[in-house]
């Protein structure tokens, strides 16, 4: 045996390996594209709000949102100081525009929120789970495909910060105090239980 044929063989097999990698990669890419196009053209993805996300889709969409909020928050300026006036202004806005979907201490969401996927979360814990700049970014910009509108569309940045101030204060507002605030605001107490949730339409 001489060295030359072996080296040639080695070179050939390396080239073959590289080629098969490239071809395999291209094929996988094409398959993904074709598969994606098939889903789009046949409507094979379950877009119904009446069924829950699969674990994979639930994880992927929620985690993407968390990371996007983190990135977006990096470009948000510092939070103004949280004052009583800001909390009160934030409460009035929250009670009028947010509570239907997000509820409050001892206050249920509107019954139809159970028909949303994803279903809007209660926010008593929000200031413990998100930084202020993240809350600001989420409220101001909204979140696509969740039902959360961009409230910056109809509000100034200081008004959005008022909502953040309210969320920061929320863990310290007892259900009883919250009820008093709503009464002072003249909010009609929603009938808490049980109308449509029991009878989901087929």
């Amino acid at each position: 045996m001489t060295g030359a044929p072996i080296a040639k063989l080695r070179a050939q097999s390396k080239a073959w390996l590289a080629a098969s990698f490239v071809c395999g990669g291209l094929a996988a890419f094409a398959a993904l594209g074709i598969g994606g196009l098939l889903v789009v053209q046949t409507g094979a993805f379950d877009v119904r709000a009446s069924t829950p996300h699969s674990l994979l889709v639930g994880w992927a969409t929620h985690t993407t949102m968390i990371h996007a909020a983190r990135n977006g928050a990096a470009r948000v300026g510092p939070s103004p100081p949280i004052t009583t006036a800001a909390v009160e202004a934030g409460f009035r806005d929250y009670d009028a525009n947010c509570a239907a979907c997000h509820g409050g201490p001892a206050v249920p969401r509107a019954p139809w929120t159970g028909g949303m996927t994803p279903s809007p979360p209660f926010l008593i814990d929000a200031s413990r789970q998100w930084r202020r700049a993240e809350l600001f970014w989420i409220i101001r910009n909204g979140v696509k495909m969740t039902g959360m509108p961009s409230w910056g569309f109809t509000r100034s940045d200081p008004q959005v910060w008022n909502l953040v101030a309210f969320l920061e204060a929320l863990p310290y507002i007892s259900p009883e105090a919250y009820g008093r605030m709503r009464a002072a605001q003249g909010t009609m107490l929603r009938r808490p239980c049980c109308s449509p949730a029991g009878s989901p339409s087929p």
Partner: peptide, 21 residues
């Protein structure tokens, strides 16, 4: 179904769950 009836003023809202749910 009715946490506010059992313990009025606790933070858990009535859930709107049907009996079956």
């Amino acid at each position: 179904r009715a946490p506010q009836q059992v313990t009025p003023g606790n933070a858990m809202p009535d859930t709107g769950l049907s009996d079956q749910q």
